[in-house]
Each structure stands twice: as structure tokens, then as C-alpha cells.
Amino acid sequence: MRILLVIALLLTACPVAAQPVTPQIVDDAIPASLTGRPGDAARGRAIVANRSTGLCLLCHSGPIAEERFQGDIAPSLAGAGSRWSEGQLRLRIVDGSRLNADTIMPAYYRTGGLQRVARAFEGKTILSAAQVEDVVAYLVTLKD
């Protein structure tokens, strides 16, 4: 009986490929967490560093010394946490085009308005809500 309960709990904890929730934008920010919970900065750092999950370092550089091959197309992530508030960072990751229609930064938590998306990614966001929160939690720690 107790085992069943544990399984049930695990199942509900598993991420479901759900429709993205519609985040509430206030001015130039999304003040509230997409999951209702704070993210995990250590997990966020791993996502940012990962070339195929976060993809961040393809274009940005950042204070992640073990990743030697970083981009210089976009501004450095160093100091992002002092330039932007948590909510401002969240909107910039969720959908930067809400602030600058011409931005080349992909919208990490949006499925609409895209053309010819590969079948494997159709209807999916680049990051899950929980992953966005982890990345936000990491970026706010980048004060210098």
C-alpha cells in the first residue's frame, strides 16, 4: 500500500509534456514563477552549460570556465543578475520578442508563431517551465 502511494507520488511529480502555461507579463517582466516554486541554481547552471539543452553558450559567453567553446554573438551572461531583476530575466527567456520583435534570441517557452518546426520538436517548448525557473535561479546569482 505504501509502495503504491510512493509510485503515485512519483508519477504526479513527473514532468508532463503539457501545454505551456500562459505567463503573466507585468511591464517588462514576468514576476511570478512559472511553476509556482523557485528554481534550482545548480541545475540552472548545468542547463546553461549544456550545448543541446540550454544552448545558451552557443551565442553567449558566461562565467562557466569548463566550457571552452562559447559564443560572442550575444552579450555575456556575466552580471546578468545585476542588470536585470528575476522577473525581467524570466520574460527574456520565455519570449524576448515581447520586448524586441527583431531579437534573434529564441523564445524558450513559446510554441506559437514558428514555421517549419522539425517534427520531433513540434508543439514543444525549448525548455520546460521547471527548466526556465532553474535557469532564472542561476542567472540571478550572476552579480558580477
Binding site: L57, I104, I126
Partner: peptide, 26 residues
């Protein structure tokens, strides 16, 4: 020139507008 894909990029964004800059160090 048309944006496409989940990353919503066009050929022109990389190869015209950002040619010479580094993508993942290259």
C-alpha cells in the same frame, strides 16, 4: 531570409548579420 525551426532563425541572421562572430567558439 525566412525564420524557421524551433530556434526561429533564418540563414541570413547567422550568415549575413553575424558572419565572423563566434557560434560556440567557431
Amino acid at each position: 531570409r525566412r525564420r524557421q525551426g524551433q530556434l526561429n532563425l533564418s540563414c541570413a541572421i547567422c550568415h549575413d548579420d553575424n558572419a565572423g562572430k563566434k557560434l560556440a567558439g567557431i
